[in-house]
């Protein structure tokens, strides 16, 4: 019992420390690949491998931090509510962009992965890759995929969006605040929204609205895509 509490405390503090130190590093150098979600995960994985610690042991503490995900998703309603004017003033372009994004994202992801012959579990983990991590993990879990893999695919989507995205959107002549914000938010979720902030406040607001609403529409549509592709 005592040992469990100590282990839990140790891993909670360790995760916090890794996150804050990596955050400092990111603030200092500001390279995309130094984002704390990536680097802190890397540090913890390395520690577990080096000390030969099982993931289940880490989760004795990790589960407490994990349990904040649900309330954090609920809290996302507050920034969306604050941006309701932007949303309702641009309702048609915003909702259309999000719907098209969710449909294209999920269908091309499933179709391509199926083409390469990947397993059902992998397809289900890859399906919500353009949806913000906490929600995509829940979608994947409900459908029978692996949440940890979903989190990794979401991260790959986010990074490819911000690394290739700027040149790609320039090539496609996507340049209005609504177009750029939507492009980042609908494909690269929170990571994309951080990038959109470099373009301007309006781009970032559109991106944040796109991220929140993609999570809502994605939750509704994901089971439908599974049904269509497996029938």
């Amino acid at each position: 019992m005592m040992e469990t509490i100590l282990l839990a405390l140790f891993f909670i503090i360790f995760t916090f420390a890794a996150y804050f130190l990596m955050n400092l590093l990111y603030i200092r150098f500001h390279y995309s690949f130094l984002m704390p979600a990536l680097t802190a995960t890397f540090v913890i994985v390395l520690f577990l491998l080096m000390t030969d610690t099982a993931y289940d042991t880490y989760m004795i503490g990790g589960q407490w931090i994990d349990s904040l995900l649900g309330p954090a998703v609920v809290a996302l309603a507050i920034p969306l509510y604050k941006q309701r004017k932007l949303l309702f003033d641009n309702l048609v372009p915003v909702i259309s962009g999000i719907l098209v994004g969710v449909v294209i994202g999920m269908s091309t992801g499933l179709a391509l992965a199926k083409l390469f012959g990947f397993s059902r579990t992998l397809l289900l983990s890859l399906l919500p890759k353009s949806i913000t991590t906490p929600v995509s993990m829940e979608i994947t879990e409900q459908l029978g995929g692996i949440p940890s893999l979903a989190a990794v695919f979401v991260m790959i989507a986010g990074f490819s969006g911000i690394i290739i995205g700027p040149a790609f959107m320039k090539m496609l002549h996507i340049k209005t605040p609504i177009g750029v914000g939507m492009g980042f938010g609908a494909s690269a979720h929170g990571i994309g929204t951080a990038k959109a902030l470099e373009y301007g406040a309006q781009e970032a607001s559109v991106s944040s609205v796109a991220m929140s609403l993609s999570a809502v529409f994605g939750s509704f549509l994901a089971p439908l895509f599974v049904w269509i592709f497996y029938l």
Binding site: G62, D66, A72, S148, A151
Partner: peptide
Amino acid sequence: LYFIPATV
């Protein structure tokens, strides 16, 4: 921070 444990 909250999705680090699951990602690990």
